[in-house]
Every structure is written in C-alpha cells, then in structure tokens.
C-alpha cells in the first residue's frame, strides 16, 4: 500500500491517452490575464489577478479555492454578469461582452421562476429567443426526460425538493444548447446524500450532451469526482495556483474515493488550499483546550 507515496502527477496510460485526446479538441473558453479590481471608499481590492486558462470541448473543469479567492467573481465574469478590469475572456475566440445564451448558468440558489411550471421554466430560454410555443414545448419535454423530471412537468417549483429544482435549472440552461455550462456551487445547498446523487446525475448528463462544464465548488471530493482538470485558486488576490489534471480514471463513481490516485490528488489539493504553515500560524482557527469547564469534573464525554 504505497498510497502516501503515490504521485498525483502520475497518470495511467488510459488516463494519459484520454487527456491527449481531450487537448486535441478545439478550445471553447479561453481566459487570458483576467483582472478584476473592486473600487470602494476604503480603496481598491483586487479580486482576481492575472487568471489564465483554457477549456476544451466537452471538458469538465472544476474551480476550487479557499473562501475569498474570487471563484464566484470569476464565474460571474464568464457569464457576463459582472465586468472585468483587464485581460480577455474569449468564447470560441470571440470576446464575451455580456450575458448570452451561449453560456448557460446554474446558480446555487436555484433561481427558478416561481410563477412558471417546470415545463415553462425549461421553455423560457427558447421562447425568449423566438422559438414557437409548440416547438419549445417538445424540446423542453426532451430535456426534462434527460434529467428525469418528465412526471413533474406541470408542477410549480415550490412543490419540488432542492435536488429536483437544481435538475430543472440544469435542464433550463441546457435546453439553449450553450457552448459552456457554468455552475456556481450548484449542490452547495443540498444535503450530503442528495449531493451524491446529483453528482452521479450530472456526470450522466455530461456524458450524453455535447457540453463543456465549468463547475465551482469548495468540496474537494466533489471536484476530484467530477473534474477532468481542477483549477486551484488562492485568495487575496485570486490567482491561479495550479491546474491539476485529475489522474482518477473514468467512468467515475464514489467507489474510487479511496484509490491511490484519488487520495494523492486530494492530498495535493489539501496542501494547496490549506497550507500547513498557514494553519499553524492562524491561531484563531485552531481549537485549544480550555481551562474553564461548565460540566462536572467526573462527567466526561471523551
């Protein structure tokens, strides 16, 4: 058992071949030297500094980093919901200037339209872009079937569970057939069990649809389980630390959680996100034994 000595950079032949093939594919999204500076009364804060990376067609990229690393800012810039101070964001070689249907977005807070039924929610993007009602309905039903919610087509969002809402949101974004699907901590509000199911579900959808996915998360296991490559950001200012190629072979499942590749990758992510020196110096975050206790001396729990 040489788990600890396994190197996250070592790739099996199959994984290597897969990455080689992936990199042959055309570039969908290219971010070049992206900067974002917030100006406020207190002065300027740099949220993102010189962020560069590329995603290839049908690649699954996860973005991970400590809180305050600007990962949400990054995805909102890519979606066109926020402006940037410098650099370039290119989709299929063309600069991004604002929100558009070529970049689908799934938010953590579901953001389904409460006044529309599930089917109408999915039809929304199509109808906004001029498709006739009948055609949009047929399309929407296909995508609802893909996410397994065809039985709930006439339900309203408030009647659905969190996981189901997020599946509708995914269908609603995918029906527009975007070049890239941006997901901003989409499973962050779900309980552990539902999240696990949703991860499997998302991988299944991704296999069956021609779409590139950029997925933000703070859950290391989630990132390794889903991603081809993981973009690790560091905080203050948000900069790229490393772009890790995940050596865990596909198809993925939770059974791989304890394989040497998985453990090695996770160890590397841990080291990047919670550097050992930083933890030691950060006194407020460590739990120290207390002198005062509010229980009977004999009444011990450990």
């Amino acid at each position: 058992m040489d788990n600890t000595t396994h190197d996250y950079l070592t790739q099996s032949d199959a994984v290597k071949a897969r990455f080689d093939k992936l990199k042959q594919r055309e570039v969908i999204l290219e971010v070049k030297g992206l900067n974002k500076v917030y100006k406020s009364a207190q002065g300027e804060t740099t949220a993102l500094s010189n962020v560069s990376f590329k995603t290839h067609r049908r690649e699954f990229v996860c973005v991970i980093g400590p809180s305050g690393c600007g990962k949400s800012t990054l995805i909102r810039i890519l979606a066109g919901l926020e402006s940037y101070s410098g650099g370039q964001v290119l989709l299929d070689g063309k600069p991004v200037t604002g929100p558009g249907r070529d970049r689908g977005m799934v938010f953590q807070g579901y953001t389904l339209f409460p006044w529309l039924t599930v089917r109408k929610n999915v039809m929304f993007g199509l109808e906004m872009n001029g498709m006739s009602g009948e055609e949009a309905r047929r399309e929407a039903d296909l995508w609802l079937e893909l996410v397994g919610l065809e039985r709930f087509a006439s339900a309203y969002p408030h009647q659905l569970s969190g996981g189901m809402k997020q599946r509708v949101a995914i269908a609603r974004a995918l029906v527009n057939q975007p070049r890239i699907l941006l997901m901003d901590e989409p499973f962050g509000a779900l309980d552990a069990q539902t999240r696990c199911k949703m991860q499997a579900h998302l991988l299944d959808i991704w296999r069956n649809v021609d779409v590139t996915i950029l997925f933000i998360t703070h859950d290391l296991d989630e990132a390794i389980l889903l991603a081809d490559r993981i973009l690790v950001l560091k905080a203050n200012p948000g900069e790229v630390q490393e772009l890790i190629e995940v050596p865990v072979p596909r198809p993925r499942s939770v059974d791989q959680l304890f394989t040497p590749e998985f453990i090695a990758t996770k160890a590397r992510l841990e080291a990047l996100i919670h550097p050992p020196t930083a933890v030691a110096s950060d006194e407020a975050e460590t739990v120290k034994p207390h002198m005062i206790r509010f229980t009977n001396v004999a009444d011990n729990v450990e």
């Binding site: 929100p99 689908g104 872009n129 941006l182």
Partner: peptide, 8 residues
C-alpha cells in the same frame, strides 16, 4: 440574472 443568462 438567470433570465439574462438564458438569453433574455
């Protein structure tokens, strides 16, 4: 924002 990203 959701509507904007859907091409509204």
């Amino acid at each position: 924002e959701a509507a904007l990203t859907l091409g509204t």
